[in-house]
Design a protein around this nucleic acid. Structure first.
Lengths: 155, 155
DNA sequence: GTAACTCATTACCCTTGCTAACTATTCCGG
DNA sequence: CCGGAATAGTTAGCAAGGGTAATGAGTTAC
């Protein structure tokens, strides 16, 4: 430990409930920034676009509005993302069966292939870093992921 | 549960190491997006700017380059953020004692006041949501925060 | 049947990240 | 000491990706 004992550290500050919010926020901000820069070079899709494909792979065809809720963005933002994905041929749009206001988005064959191919070498950077953690640390993150998600989707 | 049992969920997918990277990435992306939108209304500073003030409050005066490393951004990005904070009067810049290439950034009185004031109702949204979690869940996050940080700062 | 509402989209703007190029300063080999 | 390499910060310019407001099309309720 190279600095004084009264210097606050992430671990110490996060022990108080007041500090936990602040630390968690900083950690999430930094890790996200890092992740956004670490897309693998052979994948021309952004991290956001891959996120949408992942949701579609997990939950099946969804409307634009449902995707917007799932990814915590406003509808116009999701419209744009979906349009990009349609242009690249990874999703297809079709009208809703009964409500013609809505647009149903689903993975194309290419999009499904991309998700599967990505799954193999998925998150190369993050997966490698996870491998460098201890099993205990991985276990903590495994528990933390759904909790973070719950926080993001609250309200 | 409205969908079939073989439909993957966050919890299930994250049990495999391959899936953990993907789930953690999605969760972090969503939560960060959510946090960025949840700044309190009486604080005109962005979440990034508050993050820099927080680092300065914790670690004392730092150079622009050190701040860039701490926040995982490139130097030009930090230059801009620091300039904004200087303009709003929350930090002051002064030359480095011995190396006149470097610029030392430190909290102004106003900036320190803002950090303290913010600490009271800090992270209002996130802190409230944390309070709604179970003690066990909070404990998981308390352990997870430094690990996320370690991931973000690796390499 | 019309008024109010909902879903998606369009148009536009802002923030925030990046890289490349430039300046100023320091370090180092001769 | 001097000239080139390295380092710190900045400037300029660009792109991604959010947001809000306004619009259009379709649905629902009265």
């Amino acid at each position: 430990m190279s600095y004084a004992n009264d210097m606050p550290t992430v671990e110490k500050v996060a022990r108080s409930d007041a500090g936990l919010a602040a630390e968690l926020r900083l950690s999430v901000m930094r890790l996200r920034r890092r992740l956004a820069g670490e897309r693998h070079p052979d994948n021309e899709l952004s991290i956001n676009q891959m996120g949408v494909l992942g949701v579609l792979a997990r939950r099946g065809a969804l409307t634009v509005g449902e995707l917007a809720v799932a990814e915590r963005v406003q509808p116009p933002s999701m419209t744009r993302t979906v349009n990009c994905l349609e242009e690249s041929g990874d999703v297809v749009k079709r009208p809703h069966e009964t409500d013609r206001r809505q647009i149903v988005v689903e993975l194309s064959e290419q999009g499904r292939g991309r998700v599967l191919a990505d799954r193999d070498r998925r998150d190369a950077w993050l997966a490698q870093r996870l491998r460098e953690l201890s099993p205990d640390e991985r276990a903590v993150l495994r528990q933390a992921a759904p909790i973070l998600d719950k926080l993001a989707l609250k309200d």
